[in-house]
Design a protein around this nucleic acid. Structure first.
Length: 260
DNA sequence: ATGCCGACAGGATGTCGA
């Protein structure tokens, strides 16, 4: 079973690119972030014609997440527990039946948090705390779970082209990286790092300053697997080439294969 | 240097992203 995540940076502006990638990659499940549209404006029919069911938690202009699945989508919950008054559409979770058992998947768009020293950074940390609490609660189910998305964390210095360039950025603060480690201490595995040791493997390249051409990127899109899902992990990869397509997102898809 | 790019809403240019 192939599970993928991709921050598409507007699904309306990217529909053709997304369709091209779905046809090429053929994921069983695809989690999208930053769809930047309401549920009504989501181009469901285009994806349904490729055989996908859609669960959408949209929002006008900003944020917005979705789950596409070739199999039925069950038990959809369109928010992360604990967000009192938080109206950002940053989380959707559902259960997908597999050949053997089920897999719980979440499409996650964690806050950016810049600039540091502001309420935006506090919001980022509070949101990561909520994510950790919910991730902890999910472990009690002892099920296959894949928490995937734009987590907006650079885990280690080797996950960016120049750590000094990121030292004042919210994505690389000690508190941010601590929140990331907490998810792993709970028992979740970074699927990409479980499969690959090479440094400088990126999922995002800024549109500006020729970052793509110079390969100045960061690895911020992640797949976190529960222990049960990790035991089924067969492989994980970054679809880097998609960044070179016409009118690309600034992020590229990340996917993993689970023996389910 | 806080811009360089790109999407959005709206109908000019400010906000946001990372």
């Amino acid at each position: 079973m192939k599970l993928a995540t991709w921050n598409v940076n507007s699904v309306k502006a990217r529909t053709e690119v997304v369709i091209a990638w779905l046809k090429e990659a053929q994921p069983d499940v695809a989690c999208f972030q930053e769809i930047k549209c309401t549920d009504e404006a989501f181009p469901k029919e285009a994806f349904e014609s490729l055989g996908y069911n859609c669960a959408v938690h949209g929002q006008k202009t900003y944020n917005g997440v979705a789950i596409l699945s070739k199999r039925p989508i069950e038990d959809v919950s369109p928010r992360l527990p604990g967000g009192d008054g938080d109206d950002h559409a940053r989380y959707i979770e559902a259960v997908i039946p597999a050949n053997r058992g089920v897999v719980r998947v979440a499409s996650i768009y964690a806050p950016n948090g810049n600039p540091i020293g502001t309420e935006k950074f506090q919001y980022k940390l509070a949101w990561m705390d909520r994510l950790a609490r919910h991730a902890r609660d999910l472990l009690a189910n002892e099920e296959h779970a894949a928490l995937m998305g734009d987590i907006n964390v650079i885990p280690e210095p080797e996950d960016c082209w120049d750590p000094r360039a990121w030292e004042n950025d919210a994505l690389f603060q000690p508190e941010t990286r601590s929140a990331w480690r907490r998810l792993q201490y709970l028992g979740y595995t970074d699927a990409f790092r479980a499969c690959h040791a090479e440094p400088q493997q990126y999922t995002f390249w800024d549109y500006q300053a020729g970052c793509w051409q110079k390969n100045r990127g960061i690895r911020i899109d992640h797949i976190l697997l529960s222990p049960q899902a990790t035991d089924r992990l067969k492989g994980c990869a970054i679809d880097r080439h998609v960044r070179g397509w016409e009118r690309p997102s600034d992020h590229v898809p990340v996917w993993c294969e689970l023996d389910l």
